[in-house]
Each structure stands twice: as C-alpha cells, then as structure tokens.
Design a protein around this nucleic acid. Structure first.
Length: 988
RNA sequence: GCGCCAGUGGCGGAAUUGGCAGACGCGCAGGAUUUAGGUUCCUGUGCCCUCGGGCGUGCGGGUUCAAGUCCCGCCUGGCGCACCA
C-alpha cells in the first residue's frame, strides 16, 4: 500500500517556538529564522514523514520487499548497495566520532538515489560478544535484555541523524532467525572439504565440495584413505575420524592461543605482536587444546590472488597480503641419523623436511634447527650424546632426551612475547641427531631452538649462517662453522650477506652453481633436487587455520553433538537454530593471567540438562553430548551483507534472484561482485575483512553466491580525534571549560590555571566527550552532518572543534534566508530567470559539486555550494532556479532543511528521488579567461583574454600591456613560454 | 630494523594532470544593527616592508622558463610489519 503524501504541499508551516535549554531567543529574532530550535522542528517532522511514507524502502526484484508504491526493482535500472561496518551496540552511548561513516554512506546513498539508482542501505547490529556479558553481570540482567536495550538506544540516537535507511531490513546477529543461518553456514563448512582438483565456476581449479563426494571417492577407491585404511571395512567412528581431517570446519588438538586472564582461546588475528590478547591485553600461551578450526589455509592462494580484483585502499590490500604471507621457495629432504657413539633411536629412514626461500644456498647449510614442538624430537632423540657434541651444545644436560625435553618445557612456559624477546639472544640445544646434506653428503648437527616456529613452513630449517642473519647469530652463539655460497661485495665487513651476488663454493660431481645469480642457482638446484626426489618447488603461507571456538556464553552455540566415540556429528538442518540455554552464570571462567597450566571451561557446560541430549541421528536413539563452545564474534559479521537483502528469508541463506540483483558481478571483466561501497575503519583490515572473504568464497564454491568477493569497493574513513587538557598535576580537566589565551597557551577558565593540550581519542576519562545529542540540541542534525562532512577528507583523521560547527549553521541560515522570508515564512525568491553571472556560476558549481561528490570529496563539494550561496546572498533577491538547484545539491548532506525548503517553495513530493542537478555545458563556456603574465616565473600582470587565444596572440597581448612593459623595465625578452589561454612566462 | 603515508596561515583544510599558493570554514580585527549581548549582518585578514616591493608550502640540494607538486639527501609525526627461514 502506498503511503499517503503530505496533505498541504507547499503551504505555510507554523511551528510552536520550542526553546532549547542552551539558548534563549531574543525578542527581536524573526519568527522564521533558521535556528537550532527551528532545525529540531524540521528534522523530527521529516524523520517522521520519511518513516510514514516509506521514502527509503529499497525494492527487491522479487518477494515481499517492494518500494513504498508496491513495486519490485527494475533489473535493467541502476542499483547501488552501500554498507557500513556492523556496529556493536555498546551500552556506553555514542560520541560525535561514531556517526562519521554513517553520515558519509548516507550522503552517498542519497546522492545515488537522486541519480535514479535503487539504493540499498540498512543498518543491523553485531550484538554477540563479551562486553554484553560483562554489562549483564553488572546490571544483573540477561545479556539478551541488555543487548536489546542498547540497540534501542542506539537506534534512537541514529534516527535523529536522519539516515535514509530501509528500516525493514535491520536485524541483530542475536536474532534466532539470524543465528539459525550462521549455524547453517557453519554446517556447510563442516560438511565440505577442499578438493584441489575440482573445477571452479570462475575457471580456476580447487573448490569446496560436499563431504559426501569425498566419502564416495574413499568408497570407490578413487582417493586413498589417509593412513591406508579400507573404507568398506571401517566403522562409522573410524570414517568420521578420517573425514574430520578434511572438513573445512574441523576439530583438532593443535597448539592454540590460550589467554587464562580472558578465560578463552583466541585466533592468531586476535593476538598482538607482543603475544598478548588484543582484547584485555592479557598474556597468551601456546597450548595444545581440542578446538574448532576453519580451514582458511586452503583458500590462502585465492585470498591473496583475488585482491587484484577489488577496489580497496592499497594499505588494506598490503596488510592482507602480508598477513597471508605467500612466499615461494623449495622444500628439501634431509636424511637424519644419530651421531656416532649414540644408540640408534631414529628410524633408519627418518627424514627431516625443511622449507627455504633460498635453495641456492644449500651448499652452505652447516646445521639444522627444528622447532621445540617438532615431532622428530619425540620420535628420534637419542639417549646419549654422540661424538663431537661440543660442551656448549648440550646445555649441561646428561643426555639429548633430557636436554630436548627441558628445552621444550621451558619454551612452552613462555609467552610468545618472551620467546621473541629472549630469542634475540638465540637459545637452543643440540638434539644428538645429525642430518646429511643431500648435495655434499656432509653430516650436520640438528639443533632445536625456539627461533624456529612450528606453525610456519615445516617447523624445521636448514641453517645457512653465511647468508642468514638469524642463523649467523645462532652459529656465533654455538660455535658452528659457516660456508659462504654467495660472494659478498669487496667492502663487506663480515656477518651474514643476504644480498645478491655470484654463487660460490657450490658444486658437486653432478652440478655446479658457481657463478650463477641467486635466481639462476635456485632454479638449478631445485631442478637437481626434484630429479632425484630430494626436494621440490614449494609455496608456503604465513596464514594459519582460523581458531573458531571460544569459551564464552554470549555467542552462537555450535550445532554439533558428540557420540560415544567423541567425534563431532552435525545436527540436521531441521534442528536449527540451536538456542542458547539459560545458565546459572554467564561469566567466562578466568584464571591468573600468568597461569599457563590452566585450561578453559565453557559456560554452556554449566547447564548439564542442556549439555546432554537424547536424539536419533540415524544410529538409533541415544544420548549425545552437545558442543558447549560458542562461535567467535566474527561469525555473525561474516555474512551479514547477505542478510540485508531480506532479513526475513527463512527458506535459504539468500534468495538467488535477490543475491544476483544486488551482488553479482555486473561489469565485463569483473569477477568480484559484492557490495558496491563498504565504509568503515581500518581496524578490521585483517580480521573481519579476511574472514568474510573466506566465507564468501566457500559460499561461492558451494553455489550460494554469484561472485568471488563480498565487498567490491572498500573505503576507510578516518577518525575524529579530540583535544584533551591536563593541569599541572596531570589531571584531565573538562575540555569545554578550556580557553585559549594565545596560540598554544591554554587555561582552564573556572580555576584559572594553565593547562596542557593533548591530541588523541575522545573518551569519558579524558573529559572531552561531545555527543551527537549535544549537537542536535545546539545546532540541529543537518548542521552536525554538514560539519562532519566539511571538516576535511573523509579518509583522514582530524580533530573535533566544537566552536567551528557554527560556520555550517551560518551557511544554512543564509541559504534559508535566500529562500524564505524570515518574518513570514513565505518564499522570498525572485521568479525571474537568473542573470548571466548567476547562471554561469550556478552551472559551474553544479559541475564541480558532481565531480567532488563522485569522488567522495564532500568537504570540497560543500565549499563549492557555499560559494554559490554566498553569491546568491549578494543579490537583491535570489532567483528561484538558483535556490532550488542549490537545495537539490545540498539535499544529500543536509536532507531535512532541503526537504523543508523544497516544500516551502511549493513542491509536493519529497526530493529524495528528485534528479540531481546537471550542468548545461552551454553555461560552462566562458568569453574571457584571466591569463597571468609571469616574468622570470613571477606573476607581474593579469590580462583578460579570449579562451581560444593563440600562443602568438597571448605573447603579443602580454608584450603590449603597460604593466608588463613597466615590469620589464626595458630588458629584452629572451624567451617566451606561452601556455594559452591561462599563462605566459617571459624570460629575460 | 624494514615498508608505507604525511608535513601548506593562529586552526581545520584547498590547489585532481609541473602553470595565479592559501578555495571554503573557524578564529581574529574593524564597522553596522542593538539598552545590552551574539548562534545577526557587512568589510578585512599568509608574513615582512622604507609602500617600490621582498619573502613564503618541515630542512638542505637539484631538474625546469616555471616546483606544494618531479629527483636526491636529511628531520619530524603517524600507520603497518617485525626471528615467517
């Protein structure tokens, strides 16, 4: 049903004179002046009106979501999907920094809508997470209730901004109907594997496939069962165990990041370089625990390669590439045996495989290092020191077994940060083992040291001290030799030479690398190794699998149960969603932050009744144990852009017709597809944005979405910073009470004492919070929006300056006065056509504003609008055409006053879909331009010349000018550089 | 340590391609209206000046007829990475 239009189009609107607390109006103030009070009246009126009319309802191509007139989208017409990063509904309330991105996306959305695009813009809430649990504990209320309250508060605060969102499309990740599909995606991951040979829709090879295909391959013998089992002879439990090694979501006992102080395990992405938790800054220990993982490493290659196809800030692309950390090199196999005089412990055919990016230096490998967690140590460490073991190598231990065990135990007790910090001095211990260098059959000792990481490459390296600084340091510390295989420059002082150079000392009976470049030598030795089965070209990634389970309450439960064999079993789709149970205590079980021996405990396990469930999953009715972990906060934000298409969708994750309309690649050569514009802070560069891309690619492989990428264009907005002030004792004083006596000299007015200015974040403890509500009351939402958009480029951080906001209110006041008689509220425009100068300026401003808006340079767009408005202010009466043009130009940024003026100027319809002004090229032509005459590159005169003046004509005009003649003072002109029509430079 | 980005009036910023440095706004100054006040209006506002002009985009060089813009070397600030073999 189409909503009714406004009853009295263009009629006089009389407002009661509401008086904000902050201001008492003067008696002589005109009744219809645009003040903060007037702005409030206008803004709330139009917010109600837009809601009532369904002005911003976006139409889907099918289904129940139509526009306000009941129409579906026209697939042939333009569409634009603009999205903000998912807000977390905190209980703390907003400050003026929060809405920056929301205003920007609103401006873009409104601008596109005025150009005829069907614009999808909605805002949901990412509402699971630890803060809600903590807030619930403080208030004694269930997190669901506090979360709902927070969402309501945030909605109200944002509604007052006048954002053109389609409110029907809002939702929260905590909604049962949303959790159901988050769990569904998890099960898609659980029930899939990565088939490296499967052809992909985009022409590539390698894709997620249903796990049933793998079962068939095992059953038919097309693929060997790992461990060499016979599929037919295996029972259900053994089969589950085998399949678990291939699932994209799998449970495993691997070393994970355990933060006792936080009471949960964390993903690598959530651990800082210092080895502490990003949230809470607690120490993080590496500890083997049985946890859920996502096989994101299977997508490493595509996640790196497909960055070429997205329109993202280079910085974010670089951060993702660095995180994925693709590097090419070779793996090389070394035979390993205990040294002479040591009892045989290694299997005779034990092999140690290493990864290296410098296979060309293989002849210079003088020892080996394995990570303390390397499996070779447990299997093969001999029980006595061999001959040749130097005293410095043994760490004072009686046997290698003892030495290795002590070293590994010490390493496990350290946080990652400690390992790094202490590792600069290079610790380690000899393992009693020797490896044989395959190129020269030299035995070289094998050490274990924690500067080698189990998680990267093979967890083992060949050490080449002469060409690697870390190996050099280790060799120095342990009295190990080095052999140079790359010729350093003549002036080289010694130490490891990692630069380019000719290969030396690298020949055996069948190959010589001597004289070759690094590149040539690498290629040569890899070929030699490959021919003999001793090595191969290899690509490795820094990226690890994504640790996906958390020991928290307020998150999505896993739709997984365990039978007697303790192997995970998926619940059938009909049983989704698995709802969060009530528990006696939501609190995560936390420990002494330094207690590395503690182990996680899940809050969901506290509900014993829920944790066990009687089901028939095809093997007869029995009691199963539920998984009591919850998913990380990232799960909900990995696919929310699909949910805006229809949050009521109950049959499938997304309707294919809707997905195709809003997200499919459209332009030729575009494989990515995805949201047309995604605006948010840079802090999610490798967390959310990497995870969401991964999920999207899985959904792509499984046929649920039509493009490779979820976010076609990404824009990182800057942050709004703020000044804070401290007194002599270092205490913060209220920023609003500080006055500036002279540049750089600040004083706290109430106390009179001098204070020091700091620059940084806005925060309660810094006493410099300014809220949107303050701005609404003192200036109105339009002025606030205008100010935030005019402060500077959107992608740059800049300081908030409350006193500067007034400039934008003045602009709106002047615009209002150009359109409306302040005494009567009636239109004050002239009905005559604009004069020549006004028309020309108007068209030029239109052209410039469009250009700036297209490039999202709102600050300069607004500056141009002000120029036009200032011109109109100088006229006796502003022409209607010019005022209406300006109102339309401004509408995306200051929509309420624009609607109000539009209505008062006699228009019945909202201007939300009024075509954005277009410049008439006829008016952009100019009769004369100002040419500057430079002498020796300095401006000495200005001339009005025809725009099509020739170089000769310009030169003649310049030389004929008396001002130029005076400046030349009779000096002969040696050279003339004419750049008609704007510049001529005379060289004397 | 390595990499990337930035540095322009008292302040936020503009100058998209080497071609008039400082658009627009704040602040400030003067004036108007007003009993008064300013969230009103108008004018001015890079610095210096002997009123001719001179100087000026972090610093020092360079290329060019011409440099905020390009090149080289520094300084300062921010961000990212940091035993990844």
């Amino acid at each position: 049903m189409p909503p009714p239009t406004l009853a009295r189009p263009g009629g006089p609107c009389l407002y009661p004179r509401a008086v904000p607390e902050s201001r008492v109006p003067a008696d002589d103030e005109p009744q219809f002046r645009y003040t903060a009070a007037m702005a409030q009246q206008i803004e709330t009126k139009w917010q109600d009106e837009w809601e009532r009319r369904g002005t911003f309802w976006a139409a889907n191509p099918t289904g129940h979501l139509t526009d306000a007139a009941g129409r579906h989208a026209d697939p042939a017409a333009g569409k634009f999907y603009v999205m903000d990063m998912f807000p977390y509904p905190s209980g703390k309330g907003l400050h003026v920094g929060h809405p920056l991105g929301y205003i920007a996306t609103d401006v873009v959305g409104r601008y596109r809508r005025m150009q005829g695009d069907n614009v999808l813009h909605a805002l949901g809430y990412d509402a699971f997470g630890l803060p809600a649990e903590q807030y619930a504990l403080q208030t004694g209320r269930h997190p669901r209730l506090t979360t709902e309250d927070n969402i309501a508060t945030m909605r109200a605060q944002l509604r007052r901004l006048g954002l053109a969102h389609d409110a029907r499309r809002s939702f929260a990740t905590t909604d049962e109907s949303y959790v159901r599909w988050t769990q569904w995606v998890f099960l898609q991951m659980f029930n899939s594997w990565y088939d490296r040979d499967a052809p992909r829709r985009d022409g590539g090879r390698g894709a997620a496939r249903p796990i049933s295909e793998l079962e068939e391959a095992f059953a038919s013998g097309r693929k060997a069962v790992p461990g060499g089992g016979d599929w037919a002879a295996m029972d259900a439990s053994a089969r589950r165990r085998a399949l678990n090694q291939f699932r994209l979501a799998y449970i495993t006992d691997a070393p994970v990041n355990w933060a006792p102080g936080l009471g949960t395990v964390l993903a690598n992405e959530e651990v800082t370089a210092e080895g502490r938790s990003e949230r809470g800054n607690f120490p993080v220990f590496t500890k083997p625990l049985r946890q859920w993982n996502m096989r994101i490493t299977a997508y490493a290659e595509r996640l790196a390669a497909d960055l070429d196809g997205v329109d993202w800030p280079e910085k974010v692309v670089a951060m993702q590439r660095n995180w994925i950390g693709r590097s090419t090199g070779a793996t090389v196999d070394f035979k390993v045996a205990p040294g002479t005089g040591s009892p045989q412990a290694a299997a005779p055919d034990a092999v140690l495989t290493v990864f290296t990016t410098r296979p060309d230096t293989l002849f210079g490998a003088t020892f080996m290092v394995v990570a303390p967690e390397h499996p070779l140590l447990a299997e093969s460490t001999p029980s006595a020191w061999p001959k040749g073991a130097k005293a410095a190598w043994t760490g004072g231990h009686a046997t290698p077994v003892e030495a290795v065990r002590a070293y590994a135990a010490a390493a496990a007790k350290k946080t990652a940060a400690e390992r790094v910090a202490e590792g600069r001095g290079k610790s380690g211990v000899f393992t009693g083992l020797f490896a044989v260098n395959p190129v020269n059959d030299q035995p070289i000792p094998v050490f274990t040291a924690d500067y080698v990481l189990m998680g990267y490459g093979t967890g083992a390296i060949m050490a080449v001290p002469a060409e690697d600084e870390r190996d050099w340091e280790f060799a120095q510390a342990f009295d190990l030799p080095h052999v140079r295989t790359v010729q350093p420059p003549e002036d080289w002082q010694g130490g490891a030479w990692t630069g380019p150079g000719a290969t030396i000392n690298s020949a055996n009976a069948t190959i010589s690398l001597n004289g070759l470049s690094v590149r040539e030598a690498s290629d040569g030795i890899v070929r030699w190794l490959a021919e003999r089965g001793l090595g191969r070209e290899t690509v490795t990634y820094r990226l690890r699998d994504w640790l996906f389970s958390r020991q928290r309450y307020w998150g999505e439960p896993f739709p997984i149960v365990y039978g007697a064999d303790d192997q995970p079993i998926a619940l059938p789709d009909e049983m989704l969603p698995v709802e969060l149970p009530e528990v006696p205590d939501y609190r995560p079980r936390t420990f002494d932050p330094e207690d590395a021996d503690s182990a996680p405990e899940t809050p969901l396990a506290r509900n014993a009744e829920w944790a066990h469930v009687r089901l028939d999953l095809g093997e007869g009715e029995q009691v199963y144990r539920r998984d009591t972990n919850t998913m990380p906060n990232w799960a909900g934000s990995c696919w929310y852009y699909l949910r805006y298409l229809d949050p009521a969708e109950a049959e499938r994750i997304v309707d294919p017709a809707e997905e195709d309309y809003w997200l499919a690649p459209r332009a030729d050569g575009d494989r990515a597809g995805g949201v047309d514009l995604y605006v948010g802070g840079v802090e999610h560069a490798v967390l959310h944005l990497l995870y969401a891309r991964f999920w999207h690619k899985v959904l792509y492989d499984l046929g649920h979405v039509s493009g490779n990428e979820p976010f076609k264009r990404l824009f990182n907005q800057g942050y709004i910073q703020a000044h804070a002030y401290t007194d002599a004792r270092g205490q913060y004083v209220a920023a609003e009470e500080v006055v500036e006596d002279a540049p750089g000299a600040f004083r706290h007015a109430p106390s009179g004492q001098p204070v020091t200015q700091e620059y940084g974040k806005m925060g309660k403890s810094l006493k410099n919070i300014v809220t949107p509500d303050d701005m609404y009351a003192t200036y109105g939402a339009d002025t606030f929006r205008l100010y935030e958009m005019s402060m500077g480029p959107l992608d740059v951080s800049r300081p908030w300056e409350t006193r500067a906001v007034i400039g934008q209110l003045r602009f709106l006041q002047r615009l209002w006065r150009n359109a409306i008689d302040e005494a009567t509220g009636e239109p004050a425009v002239s009905e005559a056509a604009p004069d020549e100068a006004t028309a020309k300026l108007m068209h030029r401003v239109v052209a410039e504003v469009r250009q700036e808006m297209d490039a999202m340079r709102f600050n300069t767009a607004i500056a141009r609008m002000i120029v036009l408005n200032n011109h109109l202010t100088g006229l006796a009466a502003a022409p209607r055409l010019a005022v209406e043009t300006l109102v339309k130009l401004l509408a995306p940024v200051a929509p309420h006053i624009a609607e109000e003026l539009w209505q008062r100027l006699g228009h019945a319809e909202s201007l939300a879909r009024e075509p954005y002004p277009q410049a008439d090229p006829a008016y952009l032509a100019v009769e004369t331009v100002t040419a500057v005459v430079q002498i020796q590159g300095k401006v000495r005169a200005r001339l009005e010349v025809a725009p099509d003046i020739s170089a000769a004509g310009l030169e003649a005009a310049a030389l004929a000018s008396p001002a130029v003649a005076a400046a030349l003072g009779g000096r002969p002109v040696r050279r003339v550089i004419a750049r008609p029509p704007r510049l001529v430079n005379l060289v004397v």
